[in-house]
Simulated scan of single mutants.
Amino acid sequence: MWRNIASNAMTFLVVLVFLAGGALIWAKQEYSDAGPLAVPICLSVQSGSNMRRVSDELVSQGAVSSGALFRMGADYTDKAGQLKAGSYLVPEGSSMSEIVDIVTRGGASTCGTEVVFRVGINQAMVQVRELDPVTGRFEEVAEFDPAQGEAPEEYTSVKQKADTRFRVALAEGVTSWQVVNELRQVDVLEGDVTEVPPEGSLAPDSYEVRPGDTLESVLSRMQSAQELILATAWQNRASDLPLKTPEEALILASIVEKETGIPTEREQVAAVFVNRLNAGMRLQTDPTVIYGITKGEGILGRGLRRSELDAATPYNTYVIPGLPPTPIANPGRASIEAALNPDTADYVYFVAKTLDPKDGHVFATTLDEHNSNVAAYRRLEAQRANQ
């Protein structure tokens, strides 16, 4: 009898071990397999939260099939204590293992609210945007000019949240004075600077910032980025350019930046000025004259006067030979590269193609051809005046 009891007990233990092993294999498989999430979601992890709260939220949003198994997996992989606050994009079909990795690896939030401080040529704007996890696109919640009255509630309500991301975005062609003047209005940055960085030394780009960052540190990042862009472009420059130093290249790039906003014609505009420099011709470009008047501190807001075009100033390229003494704006990477690798065409003239700046320019190699193009443009002006 005892032999039968022992045999049955052993059989029972074998079955239990088998079942336990099978359950473990199933649990591992369930933890690693694709999850039930049908569409991406934005998961917010608050400061001081824990895996139970996160797992409950995931269950409620249909991202995991079992909160208990999610927590067990986090414990088993020693990640339960590594939860990081933030807002995280959880892709559709994410496994429990992948979600645990998302909420514990740290770094910047990948979804939720984003505040963008845009420094543009004509004005600065603040945008509050929310990521739609389904489309992967940011939807605008609010937009306002920080210099015009109080910020809206949509901004003040998210400014203090730990998972809100902040970016500073510089448009190509802004001046250093504009950058400093507008960044002084960014209320998440601290401190000030006593001097405006040299013109052209700030790289137009998008920079992630954090509340408490100093204005000086952000400007330093922009200068370091521009130094790298210029050094790389100078190293890869075309041969036989009439440019002796990287600083001269930066000056020419800033002129190209202000003369055209059409990406496909930057090299052509650069070719015109390179060909003029090689031929000993004056550059004769309005943006340099304008900079000589404004010093980059705001927009001229009117046309140039005849007296200003005739005045002998360091920036009047209708009068002086060669390049002006400094850049006239902060050029972007594309304009720097265009200045150092211009089109090989023999263009020495260009004029606007139509009255719409978006239509770009028409280029010419001879004065007769250029005069014909100018006449066509004047006719368009006359037609508009008579309408």
Rank of each mutant, 00 (worst) to 15 (best):
A352C: 10
Q235G: 08
V348G: 06
R53N: 11
E248A: 08
Y31M: 03
I328L: 06
T260H: 08
T194V: 15
P246L: 00
D359F: 12
S47R: 08
R305G: 11
V362Q: 05
E92L: 12
L323S: 02
P204L: 01
A63H: 03
S176I: 06
P242W: 10
N371G: 07
V100D: 02
I293W: 03
I336Y: 12
N386V: 14
Y76E: 14
V119D: 12
L16I: 01
D213F: 00
V186S: 09
S201L: 08
Y155E: 05
S65V: 09
L283C: 04
G301A: 15
A382C: 03
A270G: 09
L277R: 11
N122E: 07
L277D: 12
P242E: 10
A151Y: 03
P263T: 13
R165T: 15
Q148N: 14
Y377M: 09
V319Y: 02
Y318V: 13
I41T: 00
N341C: 07
G322I: 10
V54N: 06
D368M: 01
R333G: 07
A68C: 11
P327F: 08
R165A: 04
T175D: 00
A20Q: 12
G35C: 07
G360R: 08
A225Q: 13
P357E: 10
A23V: 12
Q284E: 13
F273S: 05
T232S: 15
A233H: 04
E143I: 15
N275V: 05
V179G: 00
E337S: 01
I320L: 09
A38D: 14
I99K: 09
K161C: 11
A108H: 10
F70I: 14
S49Y: 02
A270C: 14
A271R: 11
R71N: 06
G298N: 04
L69E: 08
L202M: 12
I320K: 09
S7F: 14
V126R: 08
A249Y: 02
N278R: 15
V141K: 02
S60F: 13
A382Y: 04
Q235C: 06
A382V: 04
L24Y: 13
H361M: 11
A238H: 13
I229E: 14
R53S: 12
G21A: 06
G73V: 06
